[in-house]
Nucleic acid binder design. Structure first.
Lengths: 230, 230
DNA sequence: ATTTAAGCGAACAGTGTGTTCGTTATGAAG
DNA sequence: CTTCATAACGAACACACTGTTCGCTTAAAT
């Protein structure tokens, strides 16, 4: 809504540059794309590029934040649908796979084999920051665990991301529902072994992968923090 | 032994360059090291560098192969000790953690947070190539699994590598034995869920993480293939 | 002592980066 | 339609890094 005040040229140029980046990443991978390539394909002047983005990395981040916005919108819609009484039982992992699948061309460029690792590290840090407090809280009462919570968290996040990139790199050979099922099959027993069966259930991770109330709040904020990396 | 024929200067120069690379990676990360930096610190001529290595990447690979040799030697010693009757029960994962810990300064530079992803991808591909046939063979008789073997393999390898890099990045807060234990605790239940308890046992992965005879052969060849990536 | 070749270092063309600045042209507002 | 602000242009710049070449020097092997 506030975008009304923007000069049309600005949006046009940004769009051209972002589209050029995307197609180039898909073609040859992020590392092998130069600013020169981007402005050639986008057909904008060199100085124009630098008027919009500090460098190639900021461009990628900027694009990634666009994707985050898309995901937030989707989650918001789900949440709204839930309030109207349908109670669909949010499942963030499933939503993630679905969302990623819907925009696979974008994500393949960003998070696939071709990507710089920057985004994956960004995501890893981000997810860890969200999951760690939840697990730490769930485990508060138990004095000693076979595995430190930090390690468990790291393992969980890594597993999700590795499954995600595997799926993208192979052009999504299974539907999101199946991927989410595999993730749960692989990771749930690890979680139970690391934290104890009771804690996993207490933490609101239900048998079918859905989440109970409080955790939804925590997980919902996934991608919702506007603070940037770097 | 055949190294006797080499001119002393060659080894000296290679060593200088490799050491310069190592210290520089530790300082600022692989991506931020230039050939210029390397030859400055190693104090060798520019042309000398290119007489030894095609580029920075080949230098890193070359160094990594040095590490592989170190690991092979260690494994060989273990295997010899075993033949003398001691039967120590090879455990590759544990050996990997130990070996990595012993040379942590090297590996931290190569596989830690600072590294280019090249080596990790190399390792991932390599380990997958070794593990996949083993699991495929173990599962041959069973017609349908909840999770495709490829996915299981990918998950296993990713988990090991992610745990390894976590450990290195945090300066090895736990001993190798503890790390191997955590790995087993986290991954074994996943394996059983993915393949079935019986198959996991049949495949020679014993309760304590050791391996039965045939598998040792397969796993022993870890790092032993001289073919290069790229 | 002689020979071999490793190492040197200066110079090079090539490619990419990020900045600057005067000019052009295109949207927005009246 | 005119005016005005400013986005975009593009050429030029200094800089950094790459990978190669070639004649010279120097250390190793014999």
């Amino acid at each position: 809504m506030r975008a009304k005040k923007e000069d049309r040229r600005i949006n046009r140029t940004r769009k051209l540059i972002l589209e050029a980046l995307m197609s180039l990443i898909i073609e040859r991978g992020y590392e092998n794309v130069t600013v020169q390539d981007i402005i050639d394909r986008a057909d904008v002047g060199r100085s124009t590029f630098y008027a919009h983005f500090r460098d190639k990395d900021e461009l990628l981040i900027s694009w990634f934040e666009h994707l985050r916005t898309l995901f937030e919108q989707q989650q918001q819609e789900l949440l709204d649908a839930r309030k109207t009484g349908k109670e669909p039982g949010l499942n963030i992992v499933l939503d993630l796979f679905r969302h990623t699948g819907n925009h696979h061309r974008l994500y393949k460029a960003v998070a696939g084999r071709q990507s710089g690792e920057m985004i994956l590290k960004y995501l890893h840090r981000y997810l860890t920051g969200l999951l760690l407090p939840i697990l730490e809280d769930a485990v508060k009462k138990r004095p000693s665990l076979p595995i430190p919570v930090e390690v468990t968290t790291h393992h969980l996040v890594s597993s999700l991301l590795s499954l995600m990139t595997w799926w993208l790199d192979r052009n999504m050979p299974y539907p999101p529902e199946k991927m989410e099922g595999m993730f749960r099959t692989l990771v749930r027993p690890s979680l139970e072994a690391a934290l104890g069966k009771d804690i996993v259930q207490d933490a609101g991770i239900t048998e079918d992968g859905g989440l109970k109330n409080e955790e939804v709040v925590g997980f919902y904020s996934l991608f919702a923090d506007p603070s940037c990396c770097r």
